[in-house]
């Protein structure tokens, strides 16, 4: 009688080898094209800018990070945070009832409506944002419409209003889709049970639907907040010089100011905020995005 001890370990090892082998091309690519670039950015953030705009690595220090405390930088950071939070809240207020409405349609209607939500999401982001520039412009239809209503000299473009509008427009589907998924999953007999136990319609919503769709609320909020905070295209197209957001400010360090260490430090800081937001998301019991 042959006894095959150790057989299982061989199988486990063979599986591990195969898994690593299949993943290897992607691991190698991401190491070279993502992990190493990330390390280089961190390295730059400790360098100093020479007078000619080059980066000096001979003295590594925190001087680039110290400049994050500049009042100008703080103003831009808090503005970005503010716009991003406002965008998230508006998306949530508009998106939740919208997603609820979607989730309570018949399957056939639901499928059509979902495609209608997805279509703009898949369309070119730059173009969709550009459309608002046309609509909000000083000779655009909205200003003319307001003028016809007797409201003259309204400036819509290049204002915080335009930026937040653009951000909401760009990222609303990110809020709607996870909310929809979460609400659609809810077993409706639970709501029946709540009604049976004397909850009013609103009471059942608060006691059952809302808590059970929490994962969607959190996922949607994170998915809107992160790109809104780091946005570049939207504030560039719809904002003005007094509404600079962090994304544009970083780009400026590279394309015009040539202050790469400071730009790198800003990038690292943005990355830190993103990681914080996502960690908070997973801590609150979020599932994979």
């Amino acid at each position: 009688m042959s006894t095959s001890t150790g057989l299982e370990q061989d199988a486990v090892r063979a599986e591990a080898r195969r898994g690593l082998l299949i993943g290897l091309p992607a691991i190698a690519t991401l190491t070279v094209l993502f992990a190493i670039p990330l390390i280089i950015v961190v390295a730059y953030s400790f360098g100093t800018r020479t007078r000619t705009g080059r980066t000096d690595f001979s003295t590594l220090d925190l001087s680039a990070y110290q400049r994050l405390a500049d009042p100008l930088v703080l103003e831009i950071v808090s503005r970005s945070l503010g716009y991003a939070l406002l965008t998230t809240v508006i998306c949530l207020i508009v998106g939740y009832p919208f997603a609820y409405h979607l989730a309570t349609r018949t399957p056939r209607v639901r499928a059509v409506l979902l495609v209608l939500v997805m279509l703009p999401f898949w369309s070119n982001f730059l173009v969709r944002t550009y459309a608002w520039r046309v609509l909000l412009g000083s000779d655009g239809p909205l200003v003319r419409l307001l003028g016809a209503l007797g409201i003259d000299d309204v400036v819509l473009l290049f204002t915080p209003f335009a930026i937040v509008l653009g951000l909401v427009y760009g990222f609303l589907p990110f809020m709607v889709l996870p909310l929809y998924a979460a609400i659609e999953r809810i077993d409706h007999t639970l709501i029946e049970a709540a009604r049976d136990l004397h909850a009013s319609g609103w009471g059942a919503f608060r006691a059952v639907t809302l808590p059970l769709s929490r994962s969607g609320v959190i996922a949607g909020s994170v998915l809107v907040f992160i790109p809104a905070f780091g946005a570049y295209v939207t504030p560039e197209l719809l904002g003005g010089s007094r509404t600079t957001m962090l994304g544009s400010y970083v780009v400026r360090q590279f394309l015009s100011a040539r202050d790469w260490p400071f730009g790198s430090a800003l990038s690292v800081a943005i990355l830190a905020v993103m990681l914080l937001a996502t960690t908070a998301y997973f801590r609150t019991g979020g599932r994979s995005l």
Binding site: L30, V251, S267, L271
Partner: peptide, 17 residues
């Protein structure tokens, strides 16, 4: 990470790389 990283940070990474 590449999913949550903002375009701007990714752009900086690729440029410096």
């Amino acid at each position: 990470l590449p999913v949550i990283i903002p375009d701007v940070t990714m752009a900086v990474m690729m440029l410096l790389f």
